[in-house]
Every structure is written in structure tokens, then in C-alpha cells.
Design a protein around this nucleic acid. Structure first.
Lengths: 235, 235
DNA sequence: GTCTATAGCTTGATAGAC
DNA sequence: GTCTATCAAGCTATAGAC
């Protein structure tokens, strides 16, 4: 997969030598970031210790505090790293769909698909880093204490762009119907991204948690059918 | 609200006197359970200490271990207490709808409504205990490490009952479409139940996180539109 | 049933040698 | 940059007086 997750973390108090950055340095910070990502994904912020993350990254505990100011700072940088990529991809996808919606013109399903595809494609790729990140997203999205605020801060601009595209294909839609429908989609998406294995057991083998192609084939259509049904009642 | 959350917790090692259970006893265990519920809802299992729960319940820390074997046991009992009620209500609601679906016969939306209404009604009632419990549900549902297994263990029987009702009104539906659609609904529901306040900010005031009447007016319809759209593609 | 007191660990974080 | 060594605080859980 391409290396586009942003720039490497830099030591927070390395005031000394600037010249001659050795190759191992950036890698160490990245390894810590990756290990933190994997750990937080499985057990959440409080369920993981800095010691565990350090062990997972095969570095000393003290090194974590050389690269990151605190455990919370580490978590925030894990969260921010890929959020920027997601936002960039989604924005580009929505704009591309606006410019070229296909022969039959834009549809609600098409807009949702443009919004979802960048994320589901990365999940389908199977990259463990992205999959871990998506699990964190699901946890944050459902954490009352600070989840709502965090999701707002990082993702709302692109969601407003999505809302704008939806209003264009559905001009008569009510604002509350529009935002509640997005909210339902957000819950469906993040639960799907968290791969808890529940659907495997529930369906008796008919579905698999990690089958993102199956999700990609259904979720945009599901959300479109849902929004249209909710909005239709008004007419 | 009616007192139907199950029986009171009993001391785990009170081998001595059995006669003359004083009134304060059951209350203390319940107060601990309620305080734990509130605390876990906000910060999850690992984000809360037993000391904090004890303080919240206005009892000594040691008393928590008199009534519960461990922190984990306390969490499990919080989770189980209302799960039994939810299952009983949902089952009764689905069966009542089966027997009397209304003049136009059973519909997909009707089945979903019967499944959702018992939960959304309790949330709409505003009881803080139930609202806290639902927030815990959202967290568990999205926790990969043990969430999928826990949800399976407590809720799958009723979900299979829901699937059965859906197959009756939609005989040609594919198993994978059916279960994926339920999965999407599950994510939408639990995120809505967790009241993170995000939709308030996102919608600029058009929607409110705690407005469960608004959710009740939309979610069954949204899920029905979604499932029908997903299933329709096949025909 | 409720409290005091505390054992025994683990935690996040830092100081300082190299 | 990386390590050893460690601190102060907080943790779960228990023993034992009342």
C-alpha cells in the first residue's frame, strides 16, 4: 500500500543536534505509532498500558515518552494520522462524483457510494494498520465522554460536504431527516468497520465480519433506501 | 418506572445468618449496581475504578467486594440485569405483532418497529438507569476484544426470532442480505442509544441526541427501506 | 453489613547515565 | 536516541475488627 499516512512523528524535546537525522529515528516513532494503533484498537484507550505498547513496538517504555508527550498525546496522533487521509479521499471522491455522476445522473445511492467507497476500499485491502484504525473509530464514535466531540472535530467538514451533495439530488429533504439518516449510516458503518465477529456467529456462517466487499455491495444501497423511505413519508 | 429490572444482588459469601434480611441490605447492592452502571456508561470498563464506583454509590470500597466477586463480576451483573428485560420485552412485542399485525397485514417496517419500540420507549422515558445501560450496550457492541462474543451470548436468541419474522414477510430474501441488514440496523441503533451529542453539533440544532421520539419515528422505516432496497436488487 | 487498614502490584511519567 | 532505574500515585482485592 502507498505510504500516505502523513509525516513521521518528531521527538518533542530534541532541542540539540538538528543535522544528520539518522534513518532509524523516524522509523522508531512510526513503530510506536503503529503498535499503539493495534493496541488501542483491541482494548480502547484505558484498556492498554504504555508498557504494553512499548513491548509491542519492541522499544523501551521510556522511548515512548521521548517521542510523545503523554499517553493521550500518543492516542491523539494515532487518531489524527489517518483521519486526514480519510477526509482527503472522501472529499475527492464526492467531488469526482459531482463532476461525473454517470449516464443516468446523480442518485442518492451514488452519493453514499462515493462517500463510503474510499473507506471500504482501504478496509477491503486488508492492511492491518487501517483495519486497526477503523476499530478505533468505532470505539470513539460510541464513547459518550469524548467521542462525539472528537468525531465532530475531525470529520464534520466532510460530512457537511456529503449533506450538500445529498441536498442536490434530494432538494425537498428535511434537515432533520437528512441528519438522522446520516447518523444511522454512521452507526452502521463504524460497527461494520470494527469487525467484532458477531455477524459470523449470528448468521451461522452466511456472513463474515471481515468481508468488506459484501459491505461495500450493500451499505450505500441500504442507506439510500433508508433515507428515501424516511423522506418519502413527508411528500 | 416500574421495578422490573430483576432481583437484587445477594452477598457472595454470606454463609452465616440467613434469617431476618434487613431492608438496607438489598438496597446497598442495588445502589452499587446503579452507580456502576452510570460510571461504566461514561468511561467503559477500564476507564473506571472500583473506588470511583464506591464513592458514587456512597459506600465503602470494601463493600463492593462484599456484594460482588470482582470488578468484572460487577460489570457482568450490570450488563445482565437489563438484558433479560430487553429480551423479554422484544420477544413479547414480536409475538404480539405476529398475532395482530394490523388491518393491512404484516410489513417489514412493522416487524422492525415491533423489535425496536420496547427499547426506544424505555430510552424515551428518560430513566437515567436505562439510558446508562444503553450507552454500555453501544460500547460493548463496538468492542472487538469481547464485544461480539458478549452480544452474541445475550441477544442472539431474540435476533433469530426477529429474522424469523422477517422471513415471513419477505420469503425470498437471501440469508446474507438479511443478516447484513440487521447488522447495519444494530450499528445505527446502538450509536443512537449512546447519546454522544454529535448529531446536535453536526445538524446545527436541527436534531438532538436525546430525542428518542425522533429516532422511533425514523429508524424502523429507515431499516425497512434499506433491507427492501438491498433485497430488491436480486429480483 | 460496614468499616479501617493494608498487602501487593501496576500505572504514567521522569531523571540521568551512556 | 536509547537504556536503567525509579518515583509517587493509584489500582484491585483481602484480612480482620466491630
Amino acid at each position: 500500500m502507498e505510504r500516505d499516512e502523513g509525516s513521521a512523528p518528531s521527538p518533542r524535546r530534541g532541542r540539540g543536534r538538528r543535522a544528520g537525522v539518522r534513518s532509524g529515528d523516524a522509523d522508531t516513532g512510526m513503530r510506536i505509532l503503529d503498535a499503539a494503533e493495534r493496541s488501542f484498537a483491541l482494548h480502547g484507550f484505558d484498556g492498554v498500558t504504555v508498557r504494553h505498547i512499548a513491548k509491542e513496538a519492541a522499544v523501551d517504555t521510556a522511548l515512548v515518552y521521548y517521542y510523545f508527550a503523554s499517553k493521550r498525546d500518543l492516542f491523539d496522533q494515532v487518531f489524527e494520522r489517518r483521519a486526514a487521509v480519510v477526509n482527503r479521499d472522501r472529499l475527492a471522491s464526492l467531488e469526482a462524483y459531482d463532476l461525473n455522476p454517470g449516464p443516468d445522473g446523480p442518485t442518492v445511492e451514488g452519493v453514499f457510494y462515493a462517500f463510503l467507497a474510499p473507506v471500504l476500499r482501504r478496509a477491503a485491502d486488508g492492511d492491518p494498520g487501517w483495519r486497526a484504525y477503523f476499530a478505533i473509530l468505532a470505539l470513539v464514535n460510541n464513547t459518550p465522554a469524548w467521542g462525539g466531540e472528537t468525531m465532530t472535530r475531525f470529520f464534520d467538514p466532510v460530512i457537511q460536504r456529503l449533506a450538500q451533495s445529498l441536498r442536490k439530488v434530494l432538494p425537498q429533504v428535511r434537515e432533520d431527516d437528512l441528519y438522522w439518516s446520516y447518523h444511522f449510516l454512521s452507526g452502521a458503518l463504524t460497527l461494520s468497520l470494527s469487525m467484532t465477529g458477531r455477524i459470523d456467529r449470528l448468521s451461522g456462517g452466511a456472513c463474515e465480519s471481515g468481508d468488506f466487499d459484501a459491505i461495500n455491495a450493500r451499505l450505500a444501497r441500504f442507506a439510500a433506501g433508508g433515507l428515501l423511505e424516511v423522506a418519502d413519508r413527508r411528500g
